[in-house]
């Protein structure tokens, strides 16, 4: 358990979800403490995305509860998740290429003045957020997103997520398809979110990235949460074993 917070910002207890005959989650537990990065690992089909979507309000779990700051909550829509302070950055980032950075960051929450878009105020706020996160490689925040590199796009998507006083940010494979320099840029950004006291959950297949930034590691296997521990107490080998067999070698193999 992380020493950063006594009580986790978000706890999942005994979450179950199935789609028709397919059971996706079997009584899953997960703690996401504030001020720490939790990496969620697992092979394809382990249930990482389903768990994330349950927390983000896209799926409704059939059983179990989600505790937010110690209180049980029902998150029925992504809107409700946002209202609590939960933001998700999906792999496809959901940025509109033809809009510029400011327009994307405020999409759906535009500031108005006399009924018109208040471009100046939005531009200042977006600029403050980006410089606060030290995303300084973009040349102008008025450039269309189409012109950004992969890492810059990821940074804009993350900045968009944290702009709204969010407390928990869930990142789905933030470094997939990025080069070395771009990956470093995004991982630095993840660290800065933690330093600001946010809870960060990062889905990742890349164990290099996981061991570089994660304080805690949670591994899922075929819908079960097989381990949740401090990153320091795990090594690469054991995480791979948990991911591929659901158990550490020597112990009884599940399924």
């Amino acid at each position: 358990m992380s020493d950063m917070a006594a009580e986790p910002l978000l706890s999942v207890r005994g979450l179950e979800k199935h789609f028709g005959p397919v059971q996706a989650l079997y009584s899953v537990d997960l703690d996401l403490p504030a001020g720490s990065v939790t990496a969620l690992c697992g092979d394809n089909g382990a249930g990482k995305s389903v768990l994330t979507r349950c927390i983000a309000g896209i799926h409704q779990p059939e059983k179990g509860e989600i505790l937010w700051e110690g209180r049980p909550v029902h998150i029925r829509t992504p809107r409700e998740a946002s209202r609590l302070g939960i933001e998700t950055v999906y792999q496809d980032l959901a940025l509109a290429d033809n809009l510029d950075i400011v327009q994307n960051m405020f999409l759906g929450r535009e500031r108005l003045r006399y009924g018109m878009l208040d471009e100046d105020s939005m531009e200042r706020a977006a600029s403050d957020t980006l410089s606060g996160l030290r995303v300084t490689t973009v040349r102008s925040i008025r450039q269309p997103v189409a012109s950004l590199s992969g890492g810059q796009r990821q940074s804009v998507a993350v900045a968009k997520a944290v702009m709204w006083n969010s407390k928990l940010v869930m990142l789905d494979e933030p470094t997939a398809a990025l080069g070395v320099v771009q990956t470093r840029m995004v991982l630095d950004l993840v660290r800065r979110l933690r330093d600001r006291g946010l809870a960060v959950m990062m889905i990742s297949h890349n164990l290099n990235d996981v061991f570089e930034v994660a304080d805690r590691i949670a591994v899922m296997y075929l819908g079960h949460m097989v381990v949740q521990a401090d990153a320091a107490s795990l090594d690469r080998q054991s995480v791979v074993e948990y991911m591929t067999t659901g158990a550490r070698s020597g112990a009884a193999v599940a399924s």
């Binding site: 992504p78 809107r79 999906y90 496809d92 959901a94 940025l95 509109a96 290429d97 033809n98 809009l99 327009q103 994307n104 999409l107 759906g108 929450r109 535009e110 108005l112 009924g115 018109m116 878009l117």
Partner: peptide
């Protein structure tokens, strides 16, 4: 206006617009 911005957003990436509410 906000409406105009949404027209461009939907034209550029409908999924992004949908997720933005």
């Amino acid at each position: 206006t906000r409406y105009g911005r949404y027209v461009y957003a939907i034209g550029g990436n409908p999924e992004a617009a949908r997720r933005a509410g």
